[in-house]
Amino acid sequence: MSSGKSTPWALRLATFAGMLFLHLPLLFILLYAFSAEDKSFVFPIPEFTAKWFSVAWNDRPDIWPALALSVKVALIATLIALVLGSLAAAAVWRSKFFGRDSISLLLILPIALPGIITGIALRSAFNLAEISFSFWTIVVGHATFCVVVVYNNVLARFRRTAGNLIEASMDLGANGLQTLRHIVLPNIATALLAGGMLAFALSFDEVVVTTFTAGQQETLPIWMLGELMRPRQRPVTNVVAVFVIAITFIPIMLAFWLTRDTQDVAGSGK
């Protein structure tokens, strides 16, 4: 819709300032990762050093299990979200049934309601059911809010796919399973991948629900929260923060690239 008319300078300025506001703070994280001063956040940074990267790598064995746990949780939660999200999307797309519109609302609830509610609700339910907190309780929490991401992506793709492709396939002799394999899955593959990427980023980063559904386990964000509350080596936290930014940006960029022609990701629902 870009039109030939000139853009008011105030609008340009507001957009520029807004985007600066969104991104500048992350630069300071990077900057402080090189600070030699580890007791305060003094600015300008008195002295620069790269030693915190090696400290984080060599001298902080507490980081690694947290990272490994986060990756494992994110992978499994993503897998569950992929299955549940695409099943729900297929059901909503293929059939008209009573309460169809409520499905979207139900799926979006875990991210539209504050994480603390999802967290404490699951925690008290686990307590009531006498399920002890473990790796799997974290996964359950994460999968719950990841489903909607996959659902939105896949449903958007379904809606863009000509509905009669399935009829055409059946007409040419393919039964439902063959159609699923040869026609449906290849057509939604990139949407699945994009949804999965976003779900992974969401899970990898999550801290609120995790606080309530984890027992003794420490995911990377939980580790970071601990470091923020009781700092040991502030720049090491920054190093890890930079790492977290990098590891979540990659799947998001990929998801964006995979759906670049369609804007499926359009932040819908999240």
Binding site: A162, N164, L165, E167, A168, D171, G173, Q178, N187
Partner: peptide, 20 residues
């Protein structure tokens, strides 16, 4: 008899070619 078991084929109005 489901469509995939009928000895009948269709040319669809919008062709329904498989884009992939």
């Amino acid at each position: 008899v489901p469509p995939y078991e009928r000895d009948v084929n269709t040319v669809f109005q919008d062709y329904a070619l498989f884009p992939h």
